[in-house]
Structures are given as C-alpha cells and as structure tokens.
Write a protein that binds this DNA or RNA. Structure first.
Lengths: 179, 179
DNA sequence: CAATAGGTTCAATATCTATTGAACATTCGC
DNA sequence: GCGAATGTTCAATAGATATTGAACCTATTG
C-alpha cells in the first residue's frame, strides 16, 4: 500500500543523480529528494529506510551529513519518541554558502601558487592572478547575491512550514565562514 | 634534475584534493595545478606524464575532459610536432558557467516536483517553490555577475599570454546553455 | 525496573570509478 | 613509403567509497 508512484521514484532517483554530480553520495540526494515531495514533509529514520529501501545505518549516517551541511534539520513531534527530518528552510542559500567556502579555498590556493612563483616573469603569474582575482571577486559578490535573495523574498514566512520544534542539539550547521 | 620542489608537489596535490571535493577526478586537479605553476606554461602529454608520474593514457583521457569543460586548451608550437596544453584564459568564468548549468537542472527538477504535487496543500509546495525560486534567481544573477567580472577586468589582455596558436579543433567548449 | 522501539556505530562487503599499460593509430621527417 | 615519436583507446586492475547489517546504546512506556 505504501508503494511510491513511478513518478515519485523517478524524481527521487534524479535527485540522487544530481547530488552525485555535485560530488555528494547518491543516497544523500535520494533522502533529500524524498523529503522534497513527501507528505507529511517530515519523516522518521524508519520511514526513510522503508521508502528508499536502504538500511537504517545508511539513513543515520547520511542524515547526519545532511544536517551538518545545513540542508535538512531534525525535528521533534510533541508526543512522539521518534525523531523526524525535514528540509531546512533556507537550505539553498546554505548551499551557496558552502560554495563560498570553496571559492575562498581556491583564492587561497592561488595565493600559495603566487608565492611559489615569486620573482618570476610576470607573464607566468597571469594564470594565478586571474584565479586569485576571480575568486576574490566572487567572495564579494556571492554574499551580496544571497542578501538580495533574502530581501527579495519579502515575507520570511518563518514558522509557516510547521509547528514542529527543531531539535536544538542541531546547531544551524555551524559553518566556518571566511575571516 | 627535473625534480619538482616539495612546495610544487604539495601545491599540485592540494589542487587535486580541491578538484576531488568538487566531484572531479583528482588527477584532473593535478594536471590543472601543474599547469598553473609550470614554466613554460604549456606542457606536452609527455611532460605531464613525467612530472605527475602518471600514465600517458591517464593524461590523455583527463586532458580531454579538461578541454571539454573549457578549463585548458591545446596549443600548437610553430615548429613542433607535439601538442601542448595550457590553462585557458577565462577558465574560471567557464567554471561558473558550468555551475550555471547545474543551477538550471535544479530549477527544472523543482518544477518536476511541483507537478507531482499538483493540487496538494500549499504548505507542501513551499519546499519546492523555494528551491525553484532560488535557482531561477541564480539563473538571473550569475550571468550578470560574470558580466561584471569581465567588465571590471578592463584590459582584456587577450594575446599577452603567449603567441601560441590554439589548436582550432578545440571548440570553445561548446557548452549547452540555458534556453 | 524490565521490555522494547528507535537510533547509532563500525567492521565487512559490494559497487563504482580512476588509473594503468599494452596494443593500436597517426603524424611527420627523412 | 618507412621508421620513430607522439597520442589514443580500451580491457583489466587497483583503489576508494558507499552501503549494509548485526551488535550496541538510550530513552520511553507500562
């Protein structure tokens, strides 16, 4: 009876593939994909294991990763023992913030490279200077872009998703940000 | 004699790890990393195989991938049989364009999801609407950002890198862009 | 407090992907 | 056109990573 429709399975698999493209485990994409379309929008470990036909261990490991990266959160239902997971509000800006960290890492790498070539013919430096400058530029621009997004979305709508209490042991994915 | 210094090896390896983080083969990062710091800035398949201690096959496969994604290009030296590779000018905006394709794919996926939930309780749609809207927003913003970058870098400097002729069989990484 | 459901951990395994290397193709000089 | 140098392809392998599943905690309920 709890059969997922063909379209639902397909959606979940496609999401898995997209996550794989981004270098994340396919199962992370499956979990995220299911949480995008499930009803109710919060699901327990057991639910996920059943629907996605995966082991509880797998679900446990990967939900932890998804929480850590800020894409989902753990919520508690009033009178239930189980934990539930759901998509985190602002999951996507969060991804951009992750991306921003990569950008910073690349800028720093370029700077290391430039130190290696110190004193060399300026022509040789061009490659690394472009890399450094482009990433420094993005370090400026991306936060502004996120700001514009959060502003444009005038009504923050926080709280409308549901009345569930996010479990507070889940910090807002304390992401080490650039200095 | 052609020993790479410890720092150079380290730089190359770090670049490899960063590429791996992005879901690309580590060896792609190594090749790219070496092309960032090598002197001269163009290197043949053989050079790369020797310096990176990898098989020619590996180099061949991965340079093809890097060309395909627009990060490096193949150049011909006037009186030499060999092909050489070098970092492509504008390699990094190119990466952002690749990223843009992913963004589009995510928006489309969100739209598929919304079709699945057609007629459902609006609360259930929120997750997917946020996903769609955020990605549509980035589809607007990222090209503008690239424009700003290309403008800010007032002197295009094209041609100053070297007088080598890019091999024309290498199209500018014909990237299928969004409609 | 015992029983049980829910969740986590971790060693073992299955699966996948990068990498090799040898055979093959191509180009260019002589 | 022949031979040497260079580059490519692809089946086999090595290596890495995701996934499982059984043992182990922990919390709740009666």
């Amino acid at each position: 009876m709890n059969q997922r429709s063909f379209e639902e399975v397909h959606f979940v698999e496609e999401c898995g593939l997209m996550f794989e493209l981004m270098g994340l485990p396919r199962m992370a994409g499956r979990i995220f994909g299911w949480l995008l379309i499930c009803n109710p929008p919060h699901q327990s470990t057991g639910d996920l294991a059943e629907v996605l036909q995966a082991s509880k261990g797998s679900i446990s490991t990967i939900t932890r990763m998804l929480i850590q990266t800020g894409l989902i959160e753990r919520v508690a239902l009033p009178s239930q023992r189980r934990d539930y997971f759901r998509i985190r509000l602002n999951a996507w800006p969060q991804m951009t913030k992750q991306h921003l960290m990569q950008v910073t890492a690349f800028r720093q790498l370029a700077e290391k490279g430039l130190m290696l070539l110190e004193g060399e013919n300026p022509q040789l430096l061009q490659r690394l200077e472009e890399m450094r400058d482009m990433h420094a530029f993005m370090e400026q621009e991306l936060p502004l872009m996120i700001d514009r997004w959060e502003q444009q979305r005038s009504s923050p709508k926080i709280g409308t998703i549901a009345d569930l209490t996010p479990v507070n042991q889940t910090p807002p994915a304390s992401v080490p940000m650039i200095g």
